[in-house]
Design a protein around this nucleic acid. Sequence first.
DNA 1: ATACCTCGTGGGATCGCTCCCACGACTTGC
DNA 2: GCAAGTCGTGGGAGCGATCCCACGAGGTAT
Lengths: 360, 360
Amino acid sequence: MSQLTIEDIARIAGVSRSTVSRVLNGQPNVRPSVRDRVQEVINSYGYAPQAAARQLVMRKTRLIGLILPDNAHHLFGNPIFAEIARGVSQVCAQRGYTPMLFIGRQDMNEATFFSLLRGRHFDGVILISSDRQDRSAAMLREAGMPYVRVGHDPEDDGDLQYVDVDNVAAARVAVEHLIALGHRRIAMLKGLAKDVCTHARLEGYRQALAAAGLPFDEALVGDGDWTPASGYAWTRRFLDLPEPPTALFSSNDMMVAGVVRAVQERGLTVPDDLAIVGFDDLLQTTMIFPELTTIRQPCVEMGTCAAELLLDQLEHNRRERVQIILPTALIIRQSCGYCRQAVQASASAPAVSGEEQRAG
Amino acid sequence: MSQLTIEDIARIAGVSRSTVSRVLNGQPNVRPSVRDRVQEVINSYGYAPQAAARQLVMRKTRLIGLILPDNAHHLFGNPIFAEIARGVSQVCAQRGYTPMLFIGRQDMNEATFFSLLRGRHFDGVILISSDRQDRSAAMLREAGMPYVRVGHDPEDDGDLQYVDVDNVAAARVAVEHLIALGHRRIAMLKGLAKDVCTHARLEGYRQALAAAGLPFDEALVGDGDWTPASGYAWTRRFLDLPEPPTALFSSNDMMVAGVVRAVQERGLTVPDDLAIVGFDDLLQTTMIFPELTTIRQPCVEMGTCAAELLLDQLEHNRRERVQIILPTALIIRQSCGYCRQAVQASASAPAVSGEEQRAG
DNA sequence: ATACCTCGTGGGATCGCTCCCACGACTTGC
DNA sequence: GCAAGTCGTGGGAGCGATCCCACGAGGTAT
């Protein structure tokens, strides 16, 4: 039951290895009655071909590696990656591949990681990383492993194919929304400096301010690290300013949890004392009170896109440069104060709560 | 540069396959000068042996599979799994194994999953599941794949080795704490019925009530699903009761986010109007205001334990039944109202905020 | 009836590694 | 000084699949 080989199945079914192999791989030129008999033997013995032997001759594993950012707290803590993984998984399943996630790359030295890649465990890899310091992309190239990246670095054109969003434009839309609501002092929470998207989102913030003729105030920019704790700490500092901000744009939704806590601790409320727009649109944060206005990233679609690209690369040997920028959307809920204001002012604008507006 | 084999390396270094193999595997009986020369060739060409060929003869992959619960929202959304994975990863790295996470098992039919297991991609598997309906454990056994389970079902003794916590005792400690604080009407938020730990935690709740002579009120038990949304919905119902609860025990921390929102929406506060104790001790929830009193699960340790067991099973062929129950701890913060009360009553109890107390 | 396909089937070669054994050179013990 | 190790090395066999080719049976066209 445990160590059956194709040879055993062949003997039991009274045919040759070749015939069993043909049945296994759904190839033609097998008499239906023989095919059924072989299939029955396979099923009743619970036989499945040993992957290693198959790989050796086929030079394919039909396994796709998924590499997430090194930071483990992000990794699972932030559902954005789960969504991307879901997209990847859908496409893979549909096209007969199995995606696997590298766990704990940080526990592994570079040499080990490299051998893992060179060992050809995977036909290809999807790399989710906007981390400029991350050596993964370089190692993937060095190892000759086909990959598609989710996220990219405009200063590094080493990635043949990537999928990303326009972080600059998305952030600009978010901040413009706050400006349109009348805010003049708008704080900004940055993510980690090592992540490229941090700089892009800051740039969007600057552009929105500049376009509205508002000054850029260094004191209103907080050096966050994507975690709620950093959102909490910076918001306290913002609220302690002689002239505190009336609005805040956070580079991700997770930090907003800390922002809200800091605001409430002072006995203040959102959005009246601080209007907030986030980034990501995590499902979880619908439990933040009030509901969060945020930039939705098309996470699942980023995953499906990346997977389609990768599998095309593998199956049709497509090697041209492909760079896909997917659209984001500003999702207006309560935390920015838009809806309240619309009611108060009896504005002619239609109700847009929960509706989507294209950004970028 | 891309398709070098051991034969090529041997030719370049002027030795035989066997010698290269010995160098590769750190075996003795190679002259130091030869070893160095071979190693240099290996390094300079970036050669790494092809895993499939090696596996075929060694019958080992040094890969460990990690299977998470089917529900994708849990999956990444709940950092508890990240912590367990971290523990697994540490031990694996240390002992020369590489852990890989199955992604999107829900996109895969059972036959595919089974072939994946029978294909012997992994030497062993760590299964994180307290789901009674989950067929994974059965399939692992059927496929003859060694595995260790994190979580278990007392009504199913099919698992040879598992690591778990005493959910009944932990929940009892949580509820007893609320009772000791003077609460008489204590609500309980259950998790999904398919998860075994849901029933265990409910049982702990019942035991605590019974021990204190308090009645079990069906109306105070909410059918949660682990998500903040369900915590929100049930808390609204609880607060609408003619005689609402003054305290609540939630089967996990994530649901508490919804509970707090519902409480705040009514203009009520935690812990004054509703004292809360959670379960898991997620880092994120330290941003819940006020800070959450909760049961800490030793997640990382569960991971390391499970990995140690599995690798011992693989390397020393240990096949005896091992069932490890790790201790939990009640972490007292503000949400239960203990600290406030201690101050008010000038109790003789020492300050225990943030301290740990053993449960079970 | 002969030549020529097509179909169904089996067997040998092969993938890239590790393992086992053979064998020569050198060391050690009596 | 000769038998009996030990050490370093190379080559053959084999892991369990797939793939290619050979070959016989049967059908169709000439």
